[in-house]
């Protein structure tokens, strides 16, 4: 089985963020692998270890992605592709999905594993759109992937009414959520080996496409402004004798906030 895993470099959400004049202030920001993509990498590596598979990752955009891709190599991914093109700066999920489609079509893959969503966009669209463009089946929000035979996998997905168990014919796309696994920490040996591995880098032309062809010229939507989100203010904090402060807070909930 050949697995393609998609990995995006995103802004670290744990750090503070400020908005000025409709844009995010870049100062002090750091960029990391998207958390859900780390789950996708772990899922791919587990399939390789348990069922035998060839694992390739692809990352689109993000500038210098070397560290991130090496980290994935150290976790056990075998091949890495980085598509970089200045035209991709404004790309949305649909454009990324079309670029990924081109990568997929060059590689004869059986399974694509993407993260449930990217932490910078919080869109949750790319993997599902990729499947639509490819005309292959897709299940999102997956927590278990099992290989049934050469042509099929069985996945569990967290749905609205419970856990849905779906049998998928390959090739297919699955998007994974963080409950699927606990991404491993790269070990020293893996880190050393990762340093020697090549990253296949190319631009859109080398991929055999253009910004127009992937829909970049006619973006269906674009972010025109960033705004600070409404932050809640810290309210009243009570410390001291548990019985006393708890009674006080219950009284406030009932009589001041009127929610009890």
């Amino acid at each position: 089985m050949k697995i393609l895993t998609t990995v995006k470099k995103v802004v670290d959400v744990e750090l503070n963020m400020h908005v000025e004049d409709g844009a995010i202030v870049e100062d002090g920001l750091q960029y990391v692998i998207n958390a859900w993509d780390e789950n996708a990498v772990e899922a791919s590596v587990q399939l390789k270890e348990n069922n035998g598979a060839e694992t390739t990752l692809v990352s689109v955009g993000g500038g210098d992605n070397t560290d991130m891709i090496r980290k994935c190599y150290a976790m056990g991914i075998e091949n890495g592709i980085h598509i970089e093109d200045p035209a991709l700066d404004k790309a949305d999920s649909s454009v990324f999905a079309k670029v990924l489609q081109k990568v997929y079509e060059k590689g004869d893959y059986d399974l694509v594993i993407t993260g449930k969503q990217a932490q910078d966009t919080d869109s949750g669209q790319t993997g599902i759109m990729l499947a639509e463009y490819l005309g292959v089946p897709c299940v999102s929000n997956v927590i278990i992937i099992e290989v049934t035979d050469e042509q099929h996998i069985k996945v569990s997905r967290l749905g609205d009414a419970g856990t849905e168990i779906v049998e998928l014919e390959l090739p297919a796309v699955v998007t994974v959520t963080d409950s699927i696994n606990e991404p491993r920490l790269p070990q020293m040996r893996g880190i050393m080996m990762a340093k020697k591995k090549k990253i296949q880098a190319m631009d859109l032309a080398a991929l055999g496409t253009s910004y127009n062809e992937v829909g970049g010229a006619g973006l269906k939507s674009e972010v025109v402004e960033f705004m600070a989100s409404e932050t809640r203010k810290a309210g009243q904090k009570f410390e001291g004798d548990a019985a006393e402060i708890t009674a006080q807070v219950v009284n406030l909930l009932a009589n001041e906030a009127k929610v009890l």
Binding site: V11, V13, M17, V19, I24, Q119, D120, T121, D122, G218, L219, K220, S221, E222, V223, V224, E225, F226, M227, A228, S229, E230
Partner: peptide, 18 residues
């Protein structure tokens, strides 16, 4: 449309071109 992004740290105003 308006929507949150980056784990709710910011809001985005998004213009639809279609």
């Amino acid at each position: 449309v308006v929507r949150p992004a980056i784990a709710n740290k910011v809001m985005q105003r998004v213009k639809v071109n279609t």
